[in-house]
């Protein structure tokens, strides 16, 4: 499964991407629980605060866009894991 995070906005307006391909065993062991814990269907639509980041998160077929303020709990864990894993995969 491909898990990817695209972060846009922020004062600098720089787009950053982190993406990782996760195999079956690893998916079940490390990722499944946090992916299932994310409320993919219940992302609140609220206006972002000026210069805060916007996160576009994908895990396989599932996708969510959320303002930085909503990046808490399992969302934050998932993004942190994806960033760390992407850093390792790209060397």
């Amino acid at each position: 499964m491909r898990i990817s995070v695209k972060r846009t906005g922020g004062f600098a307006g720089l787009t950053r991407r982190w993406s990782v391909e996760v195999g079956g065993d690893e998916l079940e062991r490390d990722w499944r629980e946090v992916i299932e814990a994310c409320p993919w269907e219940a992302v609140p639509a609220q206006e972002n605060q000026p210069d805060r980041f916007i996160y576009d998160i994908q895990a396989g077929e599932r996708q969510a866009t959320l303002p930085e303020r909503e990046l808490t709990g399992p969302w934050l864990r998932l993004v942190d894991m994806a960033r760390r894993a992407a850093g390792q995969q790209s060397g």
Partner: peptide, 10 residues
């Protein structure tokens, strides 16, 4: 674009 609140920094 839908990124960046509709490209506000662009």
């Amino acid at each position: 674009t839908s990124d960046d609140n509709g490209g506000v920094h662009l």
